[in-house]
């Protein structure tokens, strides 16, 4: 395959950034999108140019490191797929492809296509955990969890923290991420004790980080490689309201 690529180039956080065009020939349709970029980088190296920096690690769709906005879509047009699992057979010979970083104020560009997503860590640090000292746990079967709840918790817990929800949201809102993380723990009996403080603190951290507001478009869920449902946002809205009311009247 021959591809016409337009790729974002940005020297560092302070740099303005611009697009550069590249032509890449001989791409195998069995390549993943990142392997195609590897190939481009090898070509650039051969020309003595600096390769394009992009984030990637496991390349099997689970670590959430890869990002990339491909032709406007976070992780590309394919549903339920991370960039590393997007294969070139989904493109046509001669296609033009525009590659940009995930764009959000809360995700500043480090270099080229690499962005800093540590804002997500801040949200987790605010309350995305169950306080349990190592060694203090009761027997695993001491607290039965209805299968249905365990499954719903797992649906939310699958979030890989890639940030596609933020990148695909016109407002760069992190509600899908935050709600999935809070929802997973709030749905389990183990998570009940800290449920209220969890939602209040996580939402506060989310706001603090400079994410936008949810407008219920559903773009986040549509872009999510793990298909996290908007139900978790509704649940977060509900849990937050309850927590806030309890706090006001306590």
């Amino acid at each position: 395959m021959k591809l016409f690529l337009k790729v974002w180039k940005q020297e560092g956080p302070e740099d303005e950034g611009h697009f550069e065009s590249h032509v890449l020939d001989g791409v195998s349709e069995d390549s993943s999108f990142l392997e195609m970029l590897d190939q481009l980088n090898e070509q650039l190296l051969g020309e003595g140019k600096e390769p394009i920096a992009f984030d990637h690690d496991c390349r099997e769709g689970i670590c959430g490191t890869c990002s990339l906005n491909i032709n406007g879509y976070a992780h590309g047009l394919e549903n339920s797929t991370t960039t590393c699992q997007l294969h070139m057979r989904k493109f046509e010979d001669g296609d033009s492809i525009t590659v940009e970083p995930f764009r959000a104020k809360a995700f500043p560009v480090v270099k080229d296509l690499v962005v800093n997503r540590s804002a997500f860590d801040k949200i987790i640090q605010a309350g995305g955990f169950i306080t349990v000292r190592t060694g203090s746990a009761p027997d695993g079967n001491a607290m039965p969890v209805p299968k249905e709840n365990a499954d719903l918790a797992m649906d939310a817990a699958q979030c890989i923290g890639c940030g596609a929800c933020v990148a695909s949201c016109k407002n760069a809102s992190a509600m899908l991420f935050t709600s999935a993380k809070a929802g997973h723990l709030n749905m389990l009996p183990q998570g009940q004790a800290e449920k209220d403080s969890r939602v209040l603190n996580m939402v506060a951290a989310m706001d603090e980080a400079g994410f936008g507001n949810c407008r219920n478009y559903g773009e986040c869920s549509a872009a999510c490689p793990k298909d996290i449902s908007l139900d978790y946002i509704a649940k977060l809205n509900r849990d937050y309201a309850k927590a806030k009311i309890k706090k006001v009247f306590s």
Binding site: F129, I130, V132, T134, G135, S136, A137, P138, D139, G140, M143, A150, D151, A153, M154, A157, H184, L185, L188, Q190, G191
Partner: peptide
């Protein structure tokens, strides 16, 4: 036990 208490959705 530890992981269950942490909320790992086994």
């Amino acid at each position: 036990d530890q992981c269950v208490a942490q909320g790992v959705p086994f």
